[in-house]
């Protein structure tokens, strides 16, 4: 990505004639380079995932997972959760559809965990701003949490903690139309425009804030409070992350800037997982199909897992 930095540097230091090392110039340089990089990646990533999405539709996933076994079923569910469309408002119809098709509760939860946690927007941002190593750590630990969390919920025998009406619903079958490549490409194009215009403003705002932190906050500013030597930083980051959601994509550039100022990698990972994987609106919606006990167990398992991931990587990579 050296070319992008050159372009940004050229604009800031040559065209605008700002001085190197000047906080405002550094912030602007950072902002231009990151914005171009992130948006290029977003467009490519969303387009590719949208094409995959036309093949991996919810009815197909449902059929694949119906009657699947613990372990393998959880792994397949966690993997299928990555390219599947997810907005928290689809969580309930999806859940009901899975239950009706006889997908085991634990397998359903593996899907419900990985679906929002690992998505193409987060991946493009992580890859663009942190590089492939952090992106791979995020995907890897996200999948482990989805599989393990699902297996654990499956073992706890919580079928009675699903709201009773869910088991009574008998739905109609919808026929799936076969798409040709033209339709798939059109779908991917529309989807890309839609998602980029939806999350774009938050991302630009996030990058701008990140650039500001990058240029004006002194290096090492956070080393004491959010560095690897403060074990409390991880749980605090996870708790702060839970209510944040609508601007999940926008917070990633801010986290990157904070890491630059001394936040430890594990703490940053735990924070981002908590923002994308656990959200207040999603919980409110899931409450419609889950009794309070199961919902609480779900949130607790995720929060504990994110904290564990944070502490683990702080210990390993510090």
């Amino acid at each position: 990505m050296g070319i992008l930095e050159d372009i940004a540097g050229g604009v800031v230091f040559n065209i605008l004639n700002m001085a190197r090392g000047e906080p405002l110039a550094e912030a602007l340089n950072f902002f231009i380079a990151d914005t171009i990089k992130v948006f290029l990646l977003l467009v490519v990533m969303i387009f590719l995932v949208s094409i995959i999405r036309t093949f991996v539709t919810p009815p197909k996933v449902k059929k694949l997972l119906g009657g699947s076994k613990e372990g393998f079923g959880n792994l397949v569910a966690a993997l299928l959760g990555v390219p599947t469309p997810f907005c928290s408002c689809s969580a309930v119809p999806l859940f009901i559809g899975f239950m009706e098709a006889g997908v085991p509760l634990g397998v359903t939860f593996s899907f419900l965990i990985s679906c929002p946690l690992i998505n193409e927007v987060a991946l493009a941002m992580l890859f663009g701003l942190f590089g492939w190593k952090v992106a791979a750590l995020y995907i890897g630990s996200g999948l482990v949490i989805a599989v393990a969390g699902g297996i654990l919920i499956g073992r706890l025998d919580l079928e009675d903690e699903v709201e009773d009406f869910v088991k009574k619903i008998r739905s109609k079958k919808i026929e799936e139309k076969k798409l040709n490549w033209n339709q798939r490409l059109k779908f991917a194009r529309l989807q890309t425009i839609n998602i980029v215009t939806n999350v774009g403003p938050y991302i630009v705002l996030g990058i701008a804030l990140g650039a500001f932190i990058h240029g004006f906050v002194p290096i090492g500013f956070l080393a004491d409070i959010a560095g690897p030597n403060n074990p409390l930083a991880v749980p605090v980051a996870v708790i702060i992350g839970i209510p944040l959601y609508s601007n999940a994509a926008g917070t990633i550039p801010i986290v990157q800037a904070l890491m630059d100022k001394g936040m430890a990698i594990g703490t940053a990972l735990a924070f981002m997982m908590s923002i994308t994987g656990l959200s207040l609106p999603e919980m409110i919606i899931l409450r419609k199909v889950l009794k309070p006990k199961l919902l609480a167990i779900f949130v607790l398992i995720l929060a504990v897992s994110f904290i564990a991931v944070g502490l683990l990587f702080n210990a390993l990579l510090a």
């Binding site: 919810p58 009815p59 907005c87 408002c89 689809s90 739905s171 919808i174």
Partner: peptide, 22 residues
Amino acid sequence: DFKKIASYGVMATPALVVDGEV
């Protein structure tokens, strides 16, 4: 209403239903 949405067999929203057909 989620019950009604689910009874149409729809697993991802939004959805458009014309004369009872998804």
